[in-house]
Design a binder for these strands. Structure first.
Lengths: 231, 231
DNA sequence: GCCAATGTTTGCGCTGTGTCAAAGATGACA
DNA sequence: TGTCATCTTTGACACAGCGCAAACATTGGC
């Protein structure tokens, strides 16, 4: 399958790589189509590959011992994921599930050290990427520690609109099927509470909901909810 | 000031470095004594140095816009911290405060790329360290999403006993001054709730409390509380 | 040895959210 | 076009945990 080289180039991890090295890198890649509902890898499985999402959308989930599920993050096109082995883990800590028809590039994890050796800047940039992810995680912890549910949901929806928004009519539509349950698992609450909150927002004209659908009509209004201390 | 080289060697980040390089590395270091209550760096300040804790104990905190504080993590001897610049940040995301008399090695951040160039394995190992930190962050998110306060506190206390425990009498004492407020800020609750929980535990003989003091008397009992689904 | 500062405990009332339950909506598929 | 599975909405209720407030304990300084 033909690989979109300019897309790969646009990723921080690869933007400084020489053309020759990039070709070599892509030469080892396998392109894989992932239909909706299929997992790229599953929690606990041996980490045999690392991946780059070219197209589509994934959600990375974890299941706790007592069966509760949370969404760790959403993978967008251009994101590297399934890093586990590079981080000294032998298995994947979560499951990566396609929520939209997706295409991912796959490399055997053994190649990671080789590529790093050949291209030291790679490791630096990769570390920066992980650093950002760490920061996001801390942001989430801070939110969960200090904010009540409605503000957390507002932040989560704004983030989604930012990362996966597509203009539609007068608003911005989240560009993949997303349920209240999903939003609940991203914010640490229940689908019932999310449903109530979204209903209230819809009554205020902030969003438009629907089955697995969410359109933000008033970004500023939502941002006010997210930032403002309640009065 | 004399630097304890064997302590430095014991840190994953440095264990594979050649002796010559290590000497060079340490040659550029400044050793700094940090009395209790003093900050090594403050949130928002320019990230001029990165650090290695040789002795003592720090807590890394963040303050939200609306003035609430959370404890991001506790820094133990041997931990690298104040990484910001290596992760492509120009300022420190939090404040590192000494909760015990501490000694830290300091390097100017400019040296980081040099050391990485000279020693590519360094970047790989550093990434593994960050990876672990990311995992811890996700663990915390998972706990905050799915567990009620008492279990979260139990987990936090067990973690502290593990990382900073010193045998004392029949129990394990957390080896630095820690307040209920601190524990609250680590688990996303209030000091009042923490106080109530600890009182209850003390009545059950699980722990022994005190002013800025905490001794775990029954690790297994606590672990049961942390793991077991309440019955 | 007393005082001030700081940390801890405890009671009480309130409310945000989870839990349980049941009734719509929506879309896929036959 | 009807059926079924899935998702969403809404109500009723309970309670964990927060906010507020006041008393109590410990420590260090003078």
């Amino acid at each position: 399958m033909k690989i979109d080289k300019s897309l790969v180039r646009s990723i921080p991890l690869f933007d400084r790589m020489s053309d020759a090295d990039l070709d070599k890198f892509l030469g080892h890649a396998i392109s894989r189509r992932v239909p909706v509902g299929e997992a790229v890898f599953e929690q606990g499985a041996a980490a045999t590959h690392f991946f780059l999402l070219l197209h589509g959308r994934l959600k990375v989930t974890q299941v706790t011992e007592d069966g509760q599920q949370i969404i760790v993050r959403v993978v967008h096109p251009g994101d590297l994921f399934g890093f586990a082995k590079a981080l000294q883990r032998s298995d994947y800590p979560g499951t990566a599930l396609a929520v939209a028809e997706s295409i991912a590039l796959c490399w055997p994890t053994e190649l990671w050290p080789q590529f790093v050796d050949r291209n030291p800047r790679l490791a630096v940039t990769a570390m920066q990427t992980i650093g950002q992810r760490l920061e996001e995680a801390h942001t989430r912890i801070r939110e969960m520690s200090t904010q009540e549910v409605e503000r957390r949901v507002a932040h989560a929806v704004l983030r989604l609109a930012n990362q996966a928004g597509r203009k539609e009519g007068s608003g911005v539509r989240i560009d993949f099927p997303i349920s209240r349950q999903d939003i609940a698992e991203m914010t640490g609450t229940t689908l019932h509470t999310v449903s109530r909150i979204l209903s209230a927002w819809e009554a205020k004209g902030l969003v438009e909901g629907g089955r697995q659908k969410l359109i933000v009509l008033d970004i500023n209004g939502l941002a006010a909810l997210a930032d403002h201390v309640k009065e």
